[in-house]
Design a protein around this nucleic acid. Sequence first.
RNA 1: GGAGAGAUGGCCGAGUUGGCUGAAGGCGCUCGCCUGCUAAGCGAGUGUAGGGUUAAAAGCCCUACCGAGGGUUCGAAUCCCUCUCUCUCCGCCA
Length: 446
Amino acid sequence: MVKDLPISKQRNSYRGSFMLDLKFIRNHLDAVKTSLRNRGYDLDISAFESIDRKRREILPVLENLRHRRNKVSEEIARMKREGQDATPLISEMKKVSQEIKEKEAALSEIDEQLKPILMVIPNIPHDSVPVGRDETSNPVIRTWGRQPEMQFEPLPHWEIGEKLGILDFARASKIAGTRFALYKGLGAKLERALISFMLDIHINEHGYTEVLPPFMVNSACMTGTGQLPKFKEDLFKIEGWDFYLIPTAEVPVTNIHREETLKEDDLPIYYVSYTPCFRSEAGSYGKDTRGLIRQHQFNKVELVKFCKPENSYEELESLTRNAEEILRRLGLHYRVVTLCTGDLGFSAAKTYDLEVWLPGQKLYREISSCSNFEDFQARRAGIRFKRKGSSGTELVHTLNGSGLAVGRTVVALLENYQQQDGSVVIPEALRPYMAGIESIPSPLQE
RNA sequence: GGAGAGAUGGCCGAGUUGGCUGAAGGCGCUCGCCUGCUAAGCGAGUGUAGGGUUAAAAGCCCUACCGAGGGUUCGAAUCCCUCUCUCUCCGCCA
């Protein structure tokens, strides 16, 4: 548990860390360029280098001028105290001051050019990430369970849900529009049961601390986790405010420790958080238009970790296992794939997707995405830690993964547990959360 | 929405007739000493980031940072402006 964390307040969000990023790119230019090309990003080296060079020319000059100013100001103070005439020095310093102002303006202009370049460079994939162009190159690394055998033609979940009277898409679109759902009766209860079920397992068995964050965040948070500035179109923004609806709990939860320096003993930190998620789904017009798969608003239970760099890859494995555990308890057949370089998200260094089997649609569908961001988000958000007995600080590594997407879990349950008579069996593990009922009965049975 | 108060180092808390304060003092923490345990006591140290020096590190030098941004000035934690946040009272409200 974290207690009384000091908040370092002196920086303006990415200024201090901004430099580290710069130095790394400068020192590993070719390697950076190559790994970014693997994920389809073209880094303009010459533009970067010329701006960086200008910056490094100005900085020492500016610092020397400031040094001079500091020294002479001391001298002026001394002379005045001793009743001497400091007028000549003062007038000389006027010129120096003017020069400092000019250099400062030049430097900040350079920073303004550099910042947008740096902020849109994606993370560098981990060595273990397979090189590939798109999702067709994602290797399956393991599979659990098997496809259920059905003696009838399975229906897609939207038909099941509407027949059972637990999902109402028509009225949802009257209330809000397309890509929204209205859950009713046992449908609403099922969604709520899954949230509690997932939270309880992660809290009680996997050691996560539950948090319930704001569902709107400011732009500093969105920049910290990497949604801004590049993916503004995917977000819902509150008009007239610096508030965005969160697209995932990753954003508020990772930003819990923005601009903080944690103690070594605090790490690792595990958080689990239920939140609704809001996504514009810009650019996915006509895709998954039916059912619960792709909604503007959906529920998700999210796992978030902060850890020391040397542990982050084993933490990724255990986080992924924690997410898988939910599917296993629910008896849902799934597979785990590693995202290849071309399919990797902007901020991630490595990602495993859990894909659940959907018999109604006869395909595997992403239900969880578990990523290690290494220090990418920590650098942007200024999340550090201090090792015992050593001076200086280091960036933490951050990870997160869905544990699980709740709406898609409902989809999987409806499609995998549908019966010939139209009812849907509730898996045993979930029954305590459903007031003990064993199935959602078909209206025809009553 | 109206009226006030405030934001300083890990914490508490000085510093507001601008100058030698990166920042008194206390607490905490670290190391050493002392005390046959514990407590107390004594001494020293104790921010972050960037740049330079170095083969590297240590060390040393420089710069920046007293909520954020801008301004005045030879010089600002100290003066002015804007913003953010926190707190108190009144009103309103789930």
